[in-house]
């Protein structure tokens, strides 16, 4: 298992390297003189040229690229923001907690609602409750989150005045955004849970559990849920990854100072270093979440775990004389 995780970590290196090269190249090709951005439109041509040389932006593409990678690997230096002059890493780390909080809260909301209603509507298939929840889920999936966010702001902030519309200055500001984002992804989690559960509760082992005299709630929670969880975990993992990427739209709607807004802002201002650093950071976060999901699989399903362990050493061979032993016992 540890070997597997180590291997997965090593595999992340080429992925991240690819991301760096890709983003760097795109940003390199984007028009806009970095020195001009730093100095502003009123600076003289000489000053711009001087800064360009000083910072090394006039060097060839490959030199700049290898330099950038070298700095990251050797010194953890992601460069400086053109706008603020602050180190990029610092900027990202300042914004990341907001994004992480939003993502975690949203995933929690979507898990609670998605799982609960998914299970309920699967166990009561075709009941009115099922029909109502599936219709709501369909609605949730179809609504764009930024639109839902705007509507929620209008309703709860403008009309009812219960919650603040934007910003992040206390717990009250952290109710609407996670709810909007969470309910949006809850819809897809709910649909996935429902279909996965429906498949599982028709399995023979569920009948076996009932034949033991187990109560229905335990049959569902102990026996069915864990088996239905694999596709659900996949969806949740994906959504968490995407949310970590900064739910740009929601952060914009609610004016939350998150990573998504940082990157969008930096793209607009051609702040190359921040964009590169930000995207790299997101790629790392996404890979880590994916790894986490894969590890979770093996805890949910022992069959997957045994696949991970197959490398080289196999499980101690079961003595094949067990059956013979049995025969002897029986004949005794």
């Amino acid at each position: 298992m540890l070997k597997y995780i180590g291997k997965r970590f090593l595999l992340m290196i080429p992925v991240l390297l690819g991301v760096i090269i890709f983003v760097f190249t795109i940003m390199y090709l984007t028009p806009g003189n970095p020195a001009r951005i730093m100095l502003g439109p009123n600076a003289s041509e000489e000053a711009v040229q001087q800064l360009l040389e000083e910072k090394g932006f006039d060097r060839p593409y490959f030199v700049q690229l290898t330099d950038y990678i070298k700095n990251i690997v050797l010194r953890g230096d992601f460069g400086e923001s053109f706008q603020t002059g602050e180190p990029v890493l610092k900027e990202i780390l300042e914004r990341f907690p907001t994004t992480l909080r939003l993502a975690t809260l949203s995933v929690t909301v979507s898990l609670v609602f998605g799982l609960t209603f998914g299970i309920i509507s699967a166990t009561r298939q075709y009941s009115i409750l099922d029909k109502v929840t599936t219709s709501f889920a369909l609605l949730g999936v179809s609504m764009p989150s930024f639109w839902a966010g705007l509507m929620a702001t209008i309703l709860f902030s403008s009309i009812l005045g219960w919650l603040p519309a934007s910003g992040s200055y206390g717990w009250k500001y952290w109710i609407l955004p996670p709810l909007v984002l969470g309910l949006h992804s809850a819809a897809s989690i709910m649909r996935m849970t429902r279909s996965s559960m429906l498949e599982v509760i028709r399995q023979d082992y569920i009948r076996t559990a009932r034949a033991k005299g187990q109560t229905e709630s335990k049959v569902i929670i102990v026996h069915a849920l864990r088996n239905a969880l694999i596709p659900v975990v996949t969806v949740v993992g994906m959504q968490f990854g995407i949310l970590l990427g900064g739910s740009i739209l929601i952060e914009s709607v609610f004016a939350l100072p998150g990573l998504g807004r940082l990157i969008i802002g930096s793209i607009g201002k051609r702040d190359r270093m921040v964009v590169q650093g930000g995207v790299l950071f997101l790629a790392l976060a996404f890979s880590l979440v994916n790894l986490l999901v894969d590890i979770l699989y093996s805890f949910i399903d022992p069959r997957i775990k045994s696949q991970y362990q197959v490398t080289g050493k196999r499980r101690k061979e079961v003595p094949n004389n067990v059956d013979n032993k049995l025969e002897k016992q029986e004949s005794n």
Binding site: D204, Y205, R207, T208, A211, V222, H223, N227, I300, D301
Partner: peptide, 14 residues
């Protein structure tokens, strides 16, 4: 009750 198909009548994750 003992069911027909032993391959599917046991819970795979327990």
């Amino acid at each position: 009750m003992v069911f027909q198909d032993p391959m599917t009548s046991l819970n795979p994750v327990m």
